[in-house]
Write a protein that binds this DNA or RNA. Structure first.
Lengths: 135, 135
DNA sequence: CTCGGTGCAAAGGGTTTGCATACAT
DNA sequence: ATGTATGCAAACCCTTTGCACCGAG
């Protein structure tokens, strides 16, 4: 499920720029399309396919994180690779990172059922600080 | 976010069978395709589009639940409408329901950041009881 | 009789893939 | 030189939609 073989992987301008775009995205959690738009400013001839391929590689190499469990089922990327939870504002769509701290709620129940839990994905929904102030 | 107007909704054989199929699915958490296959046994001429439309309606009417937070981004349906968490076995793919009990882990952090949390989705991943026994 | 639901088929969008070429090693 | 990564475009998958007909109320 992680990188298996370092293999003969080349360092291309495309890969570097895709990584840079995600790293520079802060808390935006960009979609592939958005990363594409950003990288395109420096490399106008890059293709969406290449962006997807590099994004995939960076994720499986553990260099960036992926967010694949949002309610709208969009696929987003995260400069922070280690697993952590997220808060999604239903008003503005902003996605905030949450510290990975506490263990997930259903853990005890799952283990009581005999399952071994190795990871989890948690998304909180609500109205963010900014939107609440605005209302 | 829920049903807004009862309106003039008709009870068709298709709707009833789609509901029945989900209700009979136990803990399978079927995809639309699977519901389609099942309903087709009784109504060979039903179309996938109709299944999707009825599934949508049943969800927004709160008669069944939807699971849109899986890592593989598949969309699944659940006879249990009230929100609850899930455990996914990475070995066999089985999805188990977890009691809705405890509040989610990052709650305190999110509220500390000034966000108002109204709901959440939690999916635990690991190896289920059965697969562990098998190994 | 009405108009909401259905079947069919085509459209959509987001992501992946095949292929010839370009380029990192 | 060697073979990986790229660009392009077509293919894919899953879900949604448009439209004419059907049938529940």
């Amino acid at each position: 499920m992680a990188a298996e073989r370092a293999e003969a992987r080349r360092t291309t301008r495309q890969l570097a720029l895709v990584l840079a775009a995600v790293q520079a995205s802060g808390t935006e959690h960009p979609t592939a399309e958005r990363v594409f738009a950003r990288v395109r400013r420096d490399l106008p001839r890059i293709s969406l396919g290449t962006v997807y391929r590099n994004l995939q590689r960076l994720v499986s190499d553990g260099r960036i994180g992926a967010l694949a469990h949002l309610r709208d089922r969009s696929l987003r990327y995260d400069p922070t690779a280690p697993a952590h939870d997220h808060f999604v504002c239903e008003a503005c769509g902003h996605i905030d990172d949450l510290p990975a701290g506490t263990p997930p709620g259903g853990l005890a129940a799952a283990e009581h059922a005999g399952h071994a839990v190795t990871s989890h994905a948690l998304v909180l929904y609500g109205c963010c600080r900014t939107c609440r102030a605005r209302a």
